[in-house]
C-alpha cells in the first residue's frame, strides 16, 4: 500500500508540474484559463489524496476550497472579465515558446537538484513534494515574467500560489489556518486585480501593462 500511495501522490504532483508547463505555451487567454482550471483541479485531487493518506480531515476542506474557487469560480470570473473587456482574441507572448520551455526545464532541474540535496534527511514523499512545489512556484513566476497581459500575469500568480498550497499540504501537520489564509489571499488578490483591470481599462482602453508604462512617460 505504501508504494501505491506514494506513486499516486507522486503522479498528481508531477501532473501539476506538467500542467504548469502547459501554461507556458498557451498564447490564447481562454486556453490559458482553462489550463489553469485544470491545474487547480489536479491540485484539489492532490490535496485530497494527501488528506486521505495522512488521515488529516481538515485537508479535505483545503481540497474543496481549491476545487470550488480555483477550479470553478475564478476561471469563470476571468472568462467573464475577458469577454467584457473584449480581449479574448488577443495573442500575447513576450518571449518565444521555445526559449520559455527551455527555461522551464532549467528551472525544474534547478529545483530538483536543490531540494533533493537540501532535504536529504526528510521523508521521501515530502522531499518529492517540495521539489515539485518549488518547480511549480518557479514556473508560475516564469509565466508572470513572459506575459504582457495583466490577466495572464494574474493567472501566473495564482499558479504560483497553487505551488505554495502543494508545499503546505505535503508537509504533515500543517494547520488549516494557513491554507484558509492562502486561499483567501488568492481571492482577495483576484478581487483587487479585477478592480485594477477595470480601472486600467477605463483609463487607458487596454489591459496591456505597457499602457501603465506609457502613462509614466517612459520609452522602452
Amino acid at each position: 500500500m505504501k508504494g501505491l500511495t506514494f506513486d499516486i501522490a507522486h503522479l498528481l504532483a508531477g501532473g501539476l508540474v506538467l500542467i504548469s508547463f502547459m501554461m507556458l505555451y498557451q498564447d490564447r487567454l481562454f486556453a490559458l484559463i482553462n489550463v489553469f482550471a485544470l491545474h487547480a483541479l489536479v491540485l484539489a485531487l492532490s490535496v485530497g489524496w494527501q488528506a486521505y493518506i495522512q488521515n488529516a480531515h481538515h485537508l479535505y476542506v483545503t481540497a474543496a476550497i481549491a476545487l470550488l474557487f480555483k477550479a470553478i469560480v475564478i476561471p469563470i470570473g476571468l472568462h467573464r472579465i475577458i469577454l467584457r473587456l473584449g480581449i479574448h482574441r488577443d495573442i500575447e507572448t513576450a518571449v518565444g515558446i521555445g526559449p520559455t520551455m527551455l527555461a522551464g526545464i532549467g528551472l525544474v532541474t534547478l529545483s530538483m537538484v536543490l531540494m533533493l540535496r537540501v532535504t536529504a534527511t526528510a521523508d521521501a514523499l515530502a522531499r518529492e513534494d517540495l521539489a515539485f512545489a518549488l518547480s511549480i512556484i518557479l514556473l508560475g513566476l516564469l509565466v508572470m515574467v513572459t506575459r504582457r497581459n495583466a490577466v495572464s500575469q494574474v493567472v501566473g500568480f495564482m499558479s504560483l500560489e497553487n505551488g505554495l498550497v502543494l508545499a503546505a499540504t505535503g508537509a504533515k501537520g500543517m494547520p488549516l489556518v494557513v491554507e484558509i489564509s492562502v486561499a483567501f489571499s488568492i481571492l482577495i488578490a483576484f478581487i483587487v486585480v479585477g478592480v485594477f483591470l477595470f480601472r486600467i481599462r477605463e483609463r487607458f482602453d487596454s489591459v496591456d501593462v505597457r499602457a501603465l508604462d506609457d502613462h509614466r512617460g517612459e520609452r522602452r
Partner: peptide
C-alpha cells in the same frame, strides 16, 4: 517596466537558488 521588475525579482531568486 513592471514586467522587467518582475524579471529582476525572478532572476535574483533563481540566482540565489
Amino acid at each position: 517596466t513592471i514586467r522587467r521588475y518582475l524579471t529582476l525579482v525572478f532572476g535574483s531568486l533563481v540566482t540565489l537558488l
